[in-house]
Design a protein around this nucleic acid. Sequence first.
RNA 1: GGUCCUGUGGCCGAGCGGCUAGGCAGAGCUCUGCAAAAGCUCGUACAGCGGUUCGAAUCCGCUCGGGACCUCCA
Length: 488
Amino acid sequence: MENSLVIYNTLTRKKEAFKAINPPFVGMYVCGPTVYSDAHLGNARTFISFDIIFRYLTHLGYKVRYVRNITDAGHLESDADVGEDKISKKAKLAQLEPMEIVQKYTVGFHEMMQQLNALPPSIEPTATGHIIEQQYIAEEIIKKGYAYEVNGTVYFDVEKFAKTHDYTALTGRKLEDLLENTRDLEGQDEKKGRLDFALWIKAKPEHLMQWRSQWGQGFPGWHIECSAMSTKYLGEQFDIHGGGMDLAPTHHTNEIAQNVAYCGKQPANYWMHTNMLTVNGQKMSKSLDNSFLPHELFNGEHRLLSKGYSPMCVRFFMMQTHYRSTLDFSDEALQASEKGFERLMESYQTLLGLTAGKGSADDVNALREKCYEAMNDDFNTPVLISHLFEAVRIINTANDKKIELSAEQLETLKTMYQHFIIDVMGLKWEADNSRTAKVLDKVIGLVLDMRNAAKANKDFVSSDAIRQKLTDAGVQVKDSKEGSSWKV
RNA sequence: GGUCCUGUGGCCGAGCGGCUAGGCAGAGCUCUGCAAAAGCUCGUACAGCGGUUCGAAUCCGCUCGGGACCUCCA
């Protein structure tokens, strides 16, 4: 547990040494997806970033309870609007039960995360499963005097809260600016202040998702679910709260206000925000129609792609950019990553086949230390990867018999690869174990035997013709002293 | 309009006051029957203009680009 991990904290706008409240335990809450349509790659980027964080904390020896919610109710089309929630709206359009929508997209989301090799969170609570808890917190906030009820809807009194608390702590914005810039929208007349947001919303009779409450039939506001579920599973104060950057100004700001009003405590010590994924310089967003769906990316069926990219390649691609930087998605960048990723993974294969020798001057222990330094510096995966490529060079040089690595050096490299590539970055072999793949392996082996026979007879015309045909078929042939190998 | 972030070599992308990031692409070389793969070498980059400093891609100011949020969004 002794480490020098530093984390960039949005609250303080600087990197801080990470100190768990109750080590070795760490509580981490991440705002999950709203399951009203297909998850896109922008969602994936955020959750992959937190997957790395979860994995690295675990690797360091922390016992992490990672809570990531599923928003399956209460997510308003607009924060100022008291109309329908997203799930309900979609359900009407598709003539489905709201829970059918929720089920469909929850399953889709899980499939995507599994393909991308993200570990499941420790707890994945749903908003609809915590209606009582949300009502309770809303009620308590009313008791504390920071919320009020109007016609069956409960609002949080932002201006009153801001008098005695730092409402804009997370973004550092000025309350006056927020007040000036908030637009007038329908449904505002009920609210006392224009920044007030709903904790509980009165449902119209035709509204599909509604629950009974002391304020009448209704459904919960969006922000309250996270307050309710984080408090329930991680306590009033926990270590890390995360989410996409776009959530900080509204959702997280309101979430903090709710928690503080409810129990007087800032919910999390470290607020972490991942940056956006862009396409052609613009945020990938459902409303901008520039989204990539996972399957479009994996099979290449998208107008912006020349080919498909495997889930692991995509994962690697994302890790070549720091989580707090925007990541611009392009076919060209993806192709470059794919090559690099393959070289890295092939070196792993090479490493496992190396035999120990005298030892080289390369300081692999120092290299491993550098990997830790990179990750300890706010989870800097791009720098980690640059160090791993240094290892790739050493391994390939040894494979070329230009240097020899000692048993200790090999062991260090193997441990380093296992820890950082497999455990922390969550990359894995994309081995094809299908029956056809096994048959193909034997067939190509046979062809290469024939080619080697031709080579042995100095019949290079035949051997080169065979190689050319294989190349045309997409099979790359590599000759070495030990024989020939191939890859697709 | 307001608030904030950002501009790095052909492309992607680290760096956050002095020490070659890295990947991809390109050129040359080594190895090899030839290729491929691998290794080595190379480009000598920090939007522009000022300023602070012994020293700036890195700090400050201005100018010009790009983006985010202020309205649902990871």
